[in-house]
Design a protein around this nucleic acid. Sequence first.
DNA 1: GGGACTGCATACGGTACCGTATGCATACGC
DNA 2: GCGTATGCATACGGTACCGTATGCAGTCCC
Lengths: 196, 196
Amino acid sequence: MATSATARVGSLHPDDWIRAAQARLAGQGVESVRVEVLARDLGVSKGSFYWHFRDRGELLDSLLVRWEDSELDWLNRDDGASAATRWARFLERTASPKRMRMEIALRAWARGDEGVATRVAAIEKRKARLIEDVLRDIGFAETAAESWSEVALLICLGWLDLATRDKQFQFASRSLGDLLSEFILAASGGSSAPNR
Amino acid sequence: MATSATARVGSLHPDDWIRAAQARLAGQGVESVRVEVLARDLGVSKGSFYWHFRDRGELLDSLLVRWEDSELDWLNRDDGASAATRWARFLERTASPKRMRMEIALRAWARGDEGVATRVAAIEKRKARLIEDVLRDIGFAETAAESWSEVALLICLGWLDLATRDKQFQFASRSLGDLLSEFILAASGGSSAPNR
DNA sequence: GGGACTGCATACGGTACCGTATGCATACGC
DNA sequence: GCGTATGCATACGGTACCGTATGCAGTCCC
């Protein structure tokens, strides 16, 4: 990637390419992020692209790094906040239509790229821990919090899949939140922990 | 598609192409089912393909029909069987690694093709109803069975996603079954139904 | 105001597909 | 055993990409 100290007005920044790539990734999957296509989207030729990036792989990597950063950003932001705050933030982030499509695209991508899979899994584990912490904070026992947090994560993943496929599906943030609330309520009253 | 009354020995059947396509679909997604690639897989030229099929679209459609049939087959087979039998069959089918990869590939495909999405959703709804019926059979109230069956389906979908990405993930059929059992136990003891 | 560097445009060769056209050996019907 | 249809091979033109090479107008720097 070119490192220009003096960005001239009217010229493209690598971020422009990354944003365009993110839009395509979220919309139609990795296979659709093609440099010649992005160039058309941005109204320039691909000569521009290869000035900013070494190749398509570098763009995809920058994309992934940017996503990782933005995820870790909000995940770390309110580490000391109340359970309610962290839970609200989590729901807000994972039920946002735009983010949902990105998450789905990343997971599809991960299935064909070991490296991507590892990095997505890391962020995912972080989210599972967030849920686990919240569950503990609201009174779940240690092992129960861990076990049920994993099930909660599965529900979120399933929700992502369904919501990004079914057009009938309503994207109200309340729905996933309600579902999880009901689930957690049931889990708190039922068995202390799934045996695993 | 060509309809040959007399299949000569040593010659390919459309099913051979469909099977090869299924393997690629399950393994690497729709984008990977390419007629020239399949021809190489089968050790013939693509001239053969275009004798059996009109185009790539026809192959993909045949593929989908074949999947629908095989799903409806086992879904309908034991309609009158006991809840335990139907549940066991369901778990056996949805936790099989080979089928899991196919299910995931189909859902990724569905996201880019409205028609596929509709047909996948139909089968999916059928499975949700299977779960719902089982829940009712084991004592859940009407509304509770409906509500919790949807959550159970989300867990299955999340499981599909995770299991097909994470290499650490163990594909023991017991795991999904156990998870769902624990979930159902908790649901039976908790709130009667999520409010929706 | 004359290099030098920047940020792109253009053109090129290469690969991987698609679908069509056509040739051709083999088996089948009779 | 001979025409005919079958099941494929081969060759072709076309599209959509990739990455590289090179040209070139503008801007910066002094």
